[in-house]
C-alpha cells in the first residue's frame, strides 16, 4: 500500500526567494523603479543597436532641432539635436552606459574594501577598530561631493578618476555599517559555537558572520549606487568629471547651459534622465529595505 501524500503546496514554508519577491512586490514604487532600471540596463547593454544614430555624429544642417512632436521637429531625431547637431536620444542612451558603469564600478570599489575594513574593525575592537573608525570619521568630516571634487582636482578629470573619487567618498558608510552589524552578531550564540568548534578567523569572518550582515549592506549599496550617479553627473557638470565629447549626462548639461534661452530640450532632457534614474534606484532601495530588513520597516 503506497500512501503518496499529496500535500497542499501552500502549507510549505515559502522559499526565501519567493518570500523576498512577495515583500518586494508589495511596494508598488519599488516595482516601478525596478522596471525603469531594467529598461536602463537594456539601453546600456545594447546601446549601439538601440540608438538611432552615432552619439558623436554631427548633423550640421540640423543644429538645435526641437523634438519630433514640436514644430520644426524631425522624425529622425525623436528628442531633437544639440548645439552641434548630435542626436540627443542617442547620446542619452549611450550616457546610460557611462552612468551605470560609474555607479557599478564605484560601488564595487568601495564595497569590497569597506567590508574588509569593517570586518577587521569589528573583530579587533581594541587593536585596530578605533584607528580605522577615526580615519572614517575624518573622511566623513568633508561633504562627499566636496571630497570628490578635491580628489578629482588633484588627480585630474576623467572617467577613471571620477570612479576612484566616488569610491573613496562612499567608503566610510560601508565600514561603519559592516562594523556595527559585526559587533551585533559577535555576541550571538552561533558565533560562540563556531569559535568553540575551532573555526579559523577567516572562516569566522567570511562564512559565519558576514552573510548575516549582508542585508543593510545591500540596501546601502543601492543607495550609494544612486548617489554615485548623482555625484558623477555633478562632477561632469562642474567640468571635473568625464570630459566632452563623451556623452555623459552631467557633461551634456554643462554644455547645454549656454542654450537655455533657445533650446529647452537640451537642458531639460539630460537632467530628467538623471532624475528618473536616481529616483528609480532610490525607490528600489526602499523596496529592498522593506523586503530584506523587516525590523526597519516596522520601526518606521
Amino acid at each position: 500500500m503506497t500512501t503518496q501524500a499529496t500535500l497542499d503546496p501552500s502549507l510549505f514554508y515559502p522559499s526565501p526567494l519567493k518570500e523576498f519577491w512577495q515583500a518586494f512586490a508589495h511596494n508598488k514604487g519599488a516595482v516601478a523603479g525596478l522596471a525603469f532600471m531594467i529598461l536602463l540596463v537594456i539601453c546600456a547593454l545594447f546601446a549601439p543597436w538601440i540608438a538611432p544614430h552615432d552619439p558623436s555624429e554631427q548633423y550640421r544642417e540640423f543644429l538645435l532641432t526641437p523634438p519630433a512632436w514640436l514644430e520644426g521637429g524631425q522624425l529622425q531625431f525623436l528628442l531633437g539635436t544639440d548645439e552641434v547637431g548630435r542626436d540627443l536620444l542617442s547620446r542619452l542612451i549611450h550616457g546610460a552606459r557611462l552612468s551605470l558603469l560609474i555607479g557599478l564600478a564605484s560601488v564595487l570599489m568601495s564595497l569590497i574594501p569597506g567590508i574588509l575594513l569593517g570586518l577587521v574593525a569589528g573583530f579587533f575592537p581594541r587593536l585596530l577598530g578605533p584607528s580605522i573608525m577615526r580615519l572614517m570619521d575624518i573622511m566623513l568630516a568633508l561633504p562627499s561631493l566636496l571630497l570628490a571634487v578635491a580628489i578629482v582636482a588633484i588627480l585630474g578629470p576623467g572617467l577613471i578618476n571620477t570612479i576612484f573619487a566616488i569610491a573613496i567618498v562612499s567608503l566610510p558608510s560601508y565600514v561603519r555599517l559592516t562594523r556595527a552589524a559585526v559587533m551585533g552578531e559577535l555576541n550571538r550564540d552561533y558565533v560562540t559555537a563556531a569559535r568553540l568548534a575551532g573555526a579559523s578567523l577567516p572562516r569566522l569572518m567570511f562564512i559565519t558572520v558576514l552573510p548575516n550582515c549582508m542585508a543593510p549592506l545591500i540596501v546601502q549599496a543601492t543607495l550609494s549606487f544612486s548617489s554615485a550617479i548623482l555625484d558623477a553627473a555633478a562632477l561632469g557638470f562642474l567640468g571635473l568629471g568625464v570630459q566632452p565629447p563623451t556623452p555623459e549626462w552631467g557633461t551634456m548639461l554643462a554644455s547645454a547651459r549656454d542654450y537655455i534661452e533657445r533650446a529647452w530640450w537640451v537642458v531639460s532632457l539630460p537632467g530628467l534622465t538623471i532624475l528618473l534614474s536616481v529616483l528609480a534606484i532610490n525607490l528600489m532601495g526602499d523596496g529592498l529595505r522593506d523586503a530584506l530588513d523587516p525590523k526597519l520597516k516596522n520601526a518606521q
Binding site: 555633478a234 557638470f237 548639461l253 547651459r257 537632467g271 538623471i274 532624475l275 536616481v278 529616483l279
Partner: peptide, 9 residues
C-alpha cells in the same frame, strides 16, 4: 533624488 544643478537651470 534631484540633481540640483539641473533643478537650478
Amino acid at each position: 533624488s534631484m540633481p540640483i544643478f539641473w533643478w537650478g537651470l
